[in-house]
Each structure stands twice: as structure tokens, then as C-alpha cells.
Amino acid sequence: MNGISRKDFALIGQWIKPGSRVLDLGCGDGALLRELKDTRSIEGYGIEIDDANILACAQKGVNVIQGDLEHDLFGFEDQSFDYVILSRTLQTMRNTECILKEMLRIGRQGIVTFPNFGYWKNRLQIWQGHMPRSADMPYQWYNTPNIHLCTVRDFEDLCAQHDFAILERAVLTNGRSVALLPNLLGSLAIFRFEQRR
């Protein structure tokens, strides 16, 4: 990354209105929040569980609240953020539906990114008899934090089931946008969605 914006961060940045209030769930070292603060003048907060990441956020001057996404979101007020982001974390959640509903309770819109299990290279590895590994899923089956992997189509089905309106979708492979056959050719999916009224 070396100072060059990650493509997924850049896309999220384009989707977010300047000056808005953003909550980044599982914000890691705060890189996305720092970038959104610098480029979109957002009022940002992260939630993160890992000590080293909290320290990295503090060093970046990013607001961060230490806690567990599965237990510590209840204290956040309804509709108190413009956007709630869940970046590369959805697949690690025990209760996937709950976290998506919480995102739209706390925020007016949600933005999620996740590795697309339907990516052809993943399908190929399964065809060859192995659990897939890739740049977006760099783990072995026995040590992966990813417990709820899904495809682009699976996520869209879940949105339909919960009456989430998909406002925008982007699918990336190696940092490049994929327009054709996204569920087959895309490695990372990014969605912006809201509760249908």
C-alpha cells in the first residue's frame, strides 16, 4: 500500500459524502478512517478489538473504541451515523444477520466489503479438491477466522430477504473493477445498502 490508496478504500471514499459521520466496524489500524478523514473530512470512529490496532489508530490520531462487534454495539444510538462500514470482516462474524441489522440500526447506510467465494480461482481450488486460498483469503482451512464465507449472489439474496436496498455495488480483482460476470470474475465485493422503506 505504501502511501498509495487501496482501490477498495478509494471506492468507499467516492461513495461517502464529505463531512459525514462514519463508523468503521473492525477498523484495523485505522488506515481507512485516516484516509476518509484526510480526503473526505469525515467525522470518523472505529471499533476494534485488537490492542496493536488500537495503538496504531491512536498513533494515526483516529478515534477508536475498543470492543467486540458481536457484543458491544448495543450502546450505540439508533441512526447516529451516516455510514457504518464493515470492511473485510463480515465473513468472520458469528451472527451475520445480526451485524447487518445493527449496521442499519446505527447508520443510515451500510457499506460492506468481503471476499467473493464465487471467484473462479476459489471455485477452481475446490474443483481440485482443496479449500481456496487467495490474496483476499490468505488462510488455511484450519486457522482461518472466516467462518461465514459467501458469494456476491448469496449476499444479494440475503439483502433481498431482509429488505435491504442495494444502492451501489463494485467488484474488484487485483484492485481493478470487474463489470463482466462479477460473481465469477470478482475477488472482492463492495456493497452500499440501506433499509428499504
Binding site: 488500537i54 489508530c57 477508536v64 444510538e77
Partner: peptide, 14 residues
């Protein structure tokens, strides 16, 4: 922390 968030203060919590 939540009372500060309600008031839109910058806050970090470890």
C-alpha cells in the same frame, strides 16, 4: 464513551 458519542465529541477508548 457513549454519552460523548451522543454529543459528537472526539473520543477514543482503550
Amino acid at each position: 464513551v457513549h454519552a460523548l458519542l451522543h454529543n459528537k465529541r472526539n473520543v477514543s477508548y482503550a
